[in-house]
Computed example of a mutant assay.
Amino acid sequence: MTKEAISFTYYIVSTPGKVFEAITKPDLARRYWGHENVSDWKPGSSWEHIRANDERSVELVGKVVEISAPTRLVITWANASQASDPASYSRVTFEVEEYEAMVRLTVTHD
């Protein structure tokens, strides 16, 4: 079975630094997405996607593969219930670029 890439592009009136922080800073991610991405954001470190509600459940887990703030973040990604299965992991790449008077955020999941 081959895995295909899924890519989404968003245009946001902001700066690359602010968009990158909205992905990597738990308090900002909570405001925009209703969850927190928690890590020390160093290559090889783990990260967790934690639902920002009373239960604070860990929904997704992975490792930081590459980080070049504020333009690129690559992580592995798996459902927390499947974390022990190496085959369940995929990769997500966040590319943040200035585009005219805004930011182009491209998220590729493969």
Rank of each mutant, 00 (worst) to 15 (best):
T2R: 10
K3F: 14
E4M: 02
E4N: 06
A5V: 12
A5M: 10
I6N: 13
S7G: 07
S7E: 14
Y10R: 13
Y11V: 05
I12V: 10
I12K: 01
I12Q: 02
V13C: 13
S14I: 08
S14G: 05
T15N: 05
T15F: 02
T15Q: 08
P16S: 03
P16I: 06
P16R: 02
P16M: 04
G17Q: 15
V19F: 07
T24G: 01
P26Q: 03
P26Y: 01
P26V: 04
P26A: 08
L28P: 08
L28R: 14
A29C: 12
R30F: 02
R30P: 01
Y32G: 07
W33F: 15
W33S: 12
W33L: 15
W33E: 11
G34H: 14
G34W: 13
G34Y: 15
H35S: 08
H35C: 11
E36G: 00
E36M: 03
E36L: 00
E36P: 00
N37E: 06
N37D: 04
V38S: 13
V38Q: 14
S39R: 09
S39N: 14
D40C: 09
W41F: 12
P43F: 11
P43D: 07
P43T: 08
P43W: 12
G44D: 10
G44L: 14
S45Y: 05
S45V: 02
S45M: 07
S45C: 12
S45A: 15
S46R: 01
W47I: 05
E48S: 06
E48I: 00
H49D: 07
H49N: 13
I50R: 11
R51K: 13
R51H: 10
R51N: 09
A52F: 05
A52P: 05
A52Q: 06
N53A: 03
N53Q: 03
N53H: 07
D54T: 12
D54F: 09
D54K: 12
E55L: 10
S57D: 04
S57R: 09
S57N: 06
V58P: 10
V58C: 12
E59G: 12
L60Q: 04
L60N: 03
V61Q: 05
V61I: 13
G62H: 01
V64A: 05
V64C: 05
V64W: 04
V65A: 02
E66R: 14
E66N: 12
I67E: 00
S68D: 15
A69L: 06
P70W: 05
R72M: 07
R72L: 13
L73H: 00
I75C: 03
T76N: 10
T76P: 07
T76G: 11
